[in-house]
């Protein structure tokens, strides 16, 4: 059976702190939700490709997050690890309706 996508309410936009990550658990999926100073909101898997650091706790600079474990620099919009390190973090589409932030994940009820 093919996977379907589900859009899930995660948080009120106004309650998300700016320039800090929020840990969002959707079922077993651990997501780092970021609200940047430019107003944009992104969701990444909360797991650094290096050694599994929790990205939600990283320091945010513009559109990058520095992993709290060993300071890898990761682009928030596309999850790409910046040189000299390599790798990619899974991203999840985010939608904002009124003040509500929705994250789209694979339909976990069917998994």
């Amino acid at each position: 059976m093919g996977k379907t996508k589900t859009s899930i309410f995660a948080a009120k936009l106004s309650e998300l702190p700016e320039n800090l990550g929020k840990t969002v658990m959707i079922g077993e999926v651990n997501i780092a939700l970021f609200r940047l100073s430019n107003g944009k909101v992104y969701a990444l898997r909360n797991r650094c490709p290096h050694r599994g650091g929790v990205l939600a706790e990283g320091m945010i600079s513009g559109e990058y997050v520095f992993c709290p474990m060993h300071n890898w620099k990761i682009s928030i919009p596309d999850g790409v690890v910046q040189a000299p390190d390599e790798g990619c973090v899974e991203t999840f589409p985010v939608e904002i309706k009124n003040d509500n932030v929705y994250i789209t994940v694979d339909d976990i009820t069917n998994e």
């Binding site: 929020k22 969002v24 658990m25 009820t109």
Partner: peptide, 15 residues
Amino acid sequence: QEELYRKVKVGADTK
């Protein structure tokens, strides 16, 4: 407490 320590938890069935 809310901003730094609280996680959002959404069960599989919450849509």
